[in-house]
Design a protein around this nucleic acid. Structure first.
Length: 215
DNA sequence: CTCTGGATTGAC
DNA sequence: TCAATCCAGAGG
């Protein structure tokens, strides 16, 4: 078996939409004490600095400061009083842009179940594989990612890295508007692998000619 | 200091 | 359709 190549800084230091599209098919890897968690990225969203839905749209704050830092770092934020979401920082230092990872195809999860560290998950039976990493907050739990990972360098030796892999070909990428936001809802900044059953939701898109898909 | 709403999820 | 659950950010 060949040693996988970790995506380097130059991969992330580019146009955020391009990074969001090219992250599809790559492998998110987390080295945990109990084993290695691996998931194949199948759904992403781009957040741009001049985009009202972006945390960085109104300038540098304590929460979003890693978005303005060097590319290839993890930006993790707390939302809805109970969930965390995982992003990768893009563009050069000083520009606040990132890609939200919205779904993974589970490849290897040491804890092959939904994490039970949140009250609502306690006592839950193991979830079907298709649901384990379907959704940004679910994948964070299944991969063992926590707020302590905020700011981690993904281009280093770990514990959190992304392995290079072949791009999902352009004709197999569906483009839609982003999920769960209000401002900026009209922008075509969500991307997913058309063939994957592990995508959070397949929605009607307004964006014809972008491999729009229904349901 | 107070207030509002959110890049979600799971239950009803 | 809606509650859970809490903090970031904006405004006074």
């Amino acid at each position: 078996m060949v040693t996988p190549r970790v995506l380097s800084r130059v991969f992330y230091a580019r146009d955020t939409v391009m990074v969001a599209r090219e992250l599809l098919g790559k492998f998110l890897v987390h080295y945990l004490p109990e084993g290695t968690a691996i998931g194949r990225i199948v759904e992403t969203e781009a957040y741009l600095q001049n985009d009202p839905a972006c945390h960085a749209a109104r300038g540098l704050t304590k929460r979003n400061r890693v978005m303005f830092g060097p590319p290839g770092h993890a930006y993790i934020y707390f939302i809805y009083g109970m969930h965390y979401c995982f992003n990768v920082v893009t563009r050069e230092e000083g520009v606040g842009e990132a890609v939200l990872i919205r779904a993974l195809e589970p490849i290897s999860l040491p804890k092959d179940r939904q994490a039970s560290n949140l009250p609502r998950r306690v006592g839950f039976q193991p979830a079907p594989k298709v649901n384990l990493c379907r959704g940004p907050a679910r994948l964070v739990q299944a991969m063992g990612i926590t707020k302590a990972c905020n700011g981690f360098d993904l281009t280093n030796k770990g514990p959190l890295v992304i392995w290079a892999a072949e791009n999902v070909p352009s004709e197999k990428i569906v483009t839609t508007n982003r999920i769960g936001i209000k401002a900026g809802q009209e922008l075509p900044l969500r991307f997913y692998a058309a063939d994957s059953p592990y995508v959070s939701k397949k929605i009607k898109t307004k964006f014809r000619g972008e491999n729009s898909e229904v349901r």
